[in-house]
């Protein structure tokens, strides 16, 4: 069996971004479905107010996250790969029940398994942009428009609203499955701990074995991976 080392996987901003995004998605979903008249909790006016503030919070967070992903090169984590894709799916369907090892090794420069890569990329380039754009149209597009954005000629809120609602259901389904899948790490809580503290026990291995499709690792990352030997851990 390979040895485990505690590795600083999730940086400060990354965790900040992750948890705020989680919180905002929760707030947006909760107030959003109240606006949708699925239930009454805050009252319509307050729900709309919170939803709109949270939406702006989310947009600001996204701007920072995009900046962070590009300046750190972390965006490469999301480059999709077919390598191990089938193996990963088989792991979730069968292997996991037989205590089989995770097919894709989690390393600093390849934190995401092939399925995660696909799903998170989908979130980033499809679902979240669709929600943001339809949400902004919801906020700002009025029919009939004056001369301001007359070029977008949507004569009814319906299409915008339906897209926004559909996206909300998809995101909720994602959150549901995501909440479950974080229990599928080395131990039930290891993924959660990692996203809270930043530190995770990873299998120690040779740098050469790393997944090449993840692109070239940032030099700094390789030179200074901030790896602590296990015995220094205070846990």
């Amino acid at each position: 069996m390979s040895t485990h080392k505690k590795v600083y996987v999730y940086k400060g901003f990354e965790r900040f971004w992750h948890w705020n995004q989680a919180l905002l998605i929760f707030v947006l979903a909760f107030t959003g479905f109240e606006i949708h008249s699925s239930y009454d909790f805050f009252g319509f006016e307050t729900a709309v107010k919170i939803h709109n503030y949270a939406a702006w919070g989310f947009i600001i967070l996204i701007v920072f996250a995009i900046f962070w992903h590009f300046t750190t090169g972390e965006w490469k984590q999301y480059i999709p790969t077919t390598k191990n894709l089938k193996a990963q799916a088989e792991f979730y369907l069968f292997g996991i029940f037989r205590n089989a090892p995770h097919p894709a090794k989690k390393t600093l420069i390849s934190k995401l398994n092939p399925l995660q890569r696909l799903v998170y990329l989908g979130l980033k380039v499809l679902f979240i942009p669709v929600m943001v754009v339809s949400g902004l149209l919801f906020m700002f597009y009025r029919y009939p428009q004056g001369d301001s954005i007359a070029i977008i000629n949507i004569d009814n809120l319906e299409i915008i609203a339906l897209i926004h609602t559909a996206g909300a259901f998809m995101l909720l389904a994602f959150v549901l499955v995501h909440l479950y899948l974080i229990t599928t790490g080395h131990t039930i809580t290891s993924n959660l701990k990692a996203m809270i503290t930043g530190w995770e026990e990873l299998e120690e291995e040779d740098q050469k074995d790393q997944d090449k499709t993840a692109g070239k690792p940032e030099n700094e990352l390789v030179k200074n991976p901030k790896i602590l030997p296990e015995d220094e851990s205070e846990e």
């Binding site: 949708h36 319509f44 009814n156 809120l157 319906e158 609203a161 609602t165 259901f169 389904a173």
Partner: peptide
């Protein structure tokens, strides 16, 4: 016209609920 809180697409809402139930 479509008014938030009043209007919905029943099929979409049903599909969405089904998606959540199936996920769960």
């Amino acid at each position: 016209f479509y008014m938030p809180g009043r209007d919905r697409n029943r099929t979409l809402d049903l599909a969405g609920q089904l998606l959540l139930i199936l996920s769960f």
